[in-house]
Design a protein around this nucleic acid. Structure first.
Lengths: 205, 205
DNA sequence: CATTTAACCGACCCGCAAGTCGGTTCGGTT
DNA sequence: AACCGAACCGACTTGCGGGTCGGTTAAATG
């Protein structure tokens, strides 16, 4: 049992540091040694726990990234309130640069999607799955918002979800280096503007 | 003189094929031999014309990509009409999969931006410059639209430009493989919806 | 203790792709 | 005809990085 704990601990450290560095420098631009050096581990240790670099990254996706996307972008949607401000808040939060040295995990989706697209079908499949789950949840909360009278009846919820996701992913390309406050502010403002156009017409009795 | 023509011709073929394959498979995932084989050229020929793979790609950016972005996204903005439908049209056109075997050049910006970000500062600088030019032109045409009464006075033109660019770039990540007609349709519809909210309030005399 | 085995070490292998370089071809000039 | 140099060839060098493998350490068990 003691050994199993040690094993889990090492794998955990590998995954955490891996996500951090892959996110910083990209998957293909990071060598295993880059990571192993920082953890004072050897090639042998690595291949004792993972069967390949690819297998390693899949672990990272399925353990860490999925979890972060759920926590930041999906679970906040579970609410009874008006979904539009809830969505804004979740995106605003997801674009927030990490609190205290954590990086903004929400950011990385677009980078990894682009990196693995045309390169590694399996991994890019897992990443698309994550996006799909997000989309399904967005659509569902939007439809609920329509029933509750927060959103106009004519609105195409699937289209709105797509547009939200596209603009969110695109922000990543724009915010690349400097965590530009100005860009984020502009984005949130325009998102709100857009959302205003989805509300039912105010009845001016 | 004849020789100079031959030289230009070869460089031109190299750049064209390079853009095509880099766009398909990504820069770092494409070896020079991949390109040279298709053109029946040798390493020697390549290094006679370019001093490195990087130098080669910079040529491609500055000759071909800049040109395409201007043609597809910037020049169409020069009009006296209402800028909003003009912008929609230019984006719709830029998202169109290439006519007759050409690829959609408009697409590639996001891919290359993501690929070179954190990898090659010089190239990513050139790509950002292109985005900046686009943004400046968008802002300028939006401001003109405001003066002409097509856009409400309260609108933040810089913010709108940022939002347009972000959503456009993000669409690339979503449309990756299948040139999904549905996605494009949804995007254009929502963009129009958003733009409607930028118009001055209709005076219901 | 003795033995076993999970966890780990690190030198080495090997393929890939950028870049080099000595040589060849060929159109143009004298 | 002799020559020059631009355009091009392709075998080779080189470095990098994923993956291998025989060996070592140390904790658990009898």
């Amino acid at each position: 049992m003691e050994t199993t704990l040690k094993s889990r601990e090492t794998m955990h450290r590998l995954c955490g540091k891996g996500l951090e560095i892959f996110n910083e420098k990209g998957y293909y631009n990071t060598s295993l040694d880059d990571i192993l050096t920082q953890l004072s581990l050897s090639k042998g240790a690595f291949y004792h726990h993972f069967k390949s670099k690819e297998d390693y990254f899949i672990s990272i996706v399925q353990n860490l990234i999925v979890q972060k996307v759920y926590a930041l972008l999906i679970e906040p949607l579970n609410t009874e309130e008006n979904p539009l401000p809830v969505i804004v808040e979740s995106l605003e939060n997801a674009l927030e640069p990490g609190k205290k040295n954590e990086m903004a995990y929400g950011f990385m989706l677009n980078d990894f999607l682009t990196e693995f697209n045309k390169r590694n079908e399996e991994i890019s499949g897992y990443l698309k799955d994550i996006l799909n789950v997000w989309e399904v949840n967005l659509v569902s909360v939007l439809k609920k918002g329509k029933l509750d009278g927060y959103i106009a009846r004519h609105v195409d919820c699937e289209g709105v979800a797509t547009y939200i996701i596209a603009s969110y992913l695109g922000m990543r390309s724009l915010m690349m280096d400097s965590t530009n406050r100005q860009l984020k502010y502009q984005y949130i403002q325009q998102l709100k503007q857009y959302f205003r156009s989805l509300e039912p017409q105010h009845v001016m009795a």
